[in-house]
Simulated assay, not measured.
Amino acid sequence: MRLIASDIDGTILGHDGSISSRTIKAFAAAAQAGVEIVFVTGRPPRWLDPIREQIGHTGTVICSNGALTYSLETETVVSSHLLDWATVENVRNTILGLVPEPHFALECLNGFHVEPGFFGASRPSGVEGVTPAELTAQLARDGIVKMLAVLHSGNADQFMELVRPQVGALISVTHSAPELALLEMGPLGVNKAVTLAEYARSRGIAAEEVVAFGDMPNDIEMLGWAGAGYAMASGHPDALAAASLRAPSFADDGVAQVIEARLADLRRV
């Protein structure tokens, strides 16, 4: 085990925004043992405060489902994969023809842009300063890394089953919001596994030396690529089906349990 790659939400971070003390200690012990830590998330860089503040992570984070590699040490984007406006427009028009009243947003290198109606009846925390406005081609100049589509009814599995066959040749489609019909779409062929593999190669680390944790469909490729890919027992059925290994549930500090056991195995060698 030379590298631990962990998802954040639902894997180590709860809905209350906290990471357990046991999990924090497990990551610290792994780092002290010389294991590299990389967090791999659908979140953009501006939403990394939980691992900045609670774990004290200052290394690499792969953000936006692989579209960005970000350094917390320098607070800069190291590399990015971008969407062009023609693809965004094509995908938007296709989805508009498939379902009633979808709403869209774009995650760009310089911020988050949403069209009117995207937030629905209640605005989530963390986007208080975002003002809804029409999404235009000018945003492509800001570097589009992720496209979001939301329905204010139904669920994400149903939405993805409908949309992916129609746009899957243009854009990567996944989801990670368990209670919202929200699709996350990025550059074609880009996902957590692709960018994690690029990073690992740059460090001379083979897939067999990587332990990965995740709980949602946007983790599937990463869990399959890693030598030891653990789906959380509390995770989405598709993630559980895709992973060769299972960690105890989030509520039982599953990630910490696995890290502790693997570190104990290393000490016995």
Score class of each variant (00 low, 15 high):
Pro124Leu: 00
Ala207Phe: 04
Ser202Gly: 14
Gly227Arg: 07
Leu151Ser: 07
Thr11Cys: 11
Gly10Ala: 13
Ala33Met: 05
Val88Gly: 02
Gly34Ser: 10
Ile4Pro: 02
Ala29Gly: 01
Ile259Thr: 15
Ser249Asp: 03
Leu139Trp: 11
His113Phe: 15
Asp157Ala: 14
Pro248Ile: 15
Leu148Cys: 06
Val38Asp: 05
Gln54Asp: 06
Thr58Trp: 01
His175Leu: 09
Phe112Met: 06
Gly97Asn: 01
Asp157Gln: 11
Arg2Phe: 01
Phe118Val: 01
Leu48Trp: 10
Leu3Tyr: 02
Asn93Leu: 13
Glu221Thr: 12
Glu36Trp: 00
Leu83Pro: 03
Leu82Cys: 13
Glu128Thr: 09
His57Gln: 08
Pro187Arg: 15
Leu72Pro: 03
Ser21Pro: 05
Arg203Asp: 11
Arg46Ile: 10
Leu109Thr: 08
Gly66Arg: 10
Leu223Thr: 14
Gly129Tyr: 06
Met185Glu: 04
Ala121Met: 07
Met160Arg: 15
Leu139Ala: 11
Ala121Glu: 05
Leu223Gln: 11
Glu73Ser: 15
Asp49Asn: 09
Ala140Pro: 03
Trp47Gly: 08
Ile62Cys: 13
Thr69Lys: 05
Glu198Val: 05
Ala243Ser: 14
Arg262Lys: 12
Ala243Cys: 11
Ile95Tyr: 02
Lys146Phe: 05
Ile4Asn: 00
Gly56Ser: 13
Ala105His: 00
Arg2Ile: 00
Gly186Thr: 15
Leu196Cys: 02
Ala140Asp: 15
Ala231Lys: 08
Asn90Cys: 09
Ala226Gly: 07
Val210Gly: 04
Lys192His: 04
Leu162Tyr: 04
Glu161Gly: 06
Gly235Trp: 03
Asp9Glu: 14
Asp238Arg: 09
Phe104Met: 06
Val167Met: 09
Gly111Cys: 11
Glu260Cys: 03
Asp265Ser: 14
Leu48Met: 13
Ala264Gly: 02
Phe119Trp: 14
Gly17Ala: 12
Glu184Tyr: 10
Ile171Asp: 14
Val255Arg: 08
Glu75Met: 14
Thr76Leu: 08
His15Tyr: 15
Arg46Pro: 07
Ser18Gly: 12
Gly224Thr: 07
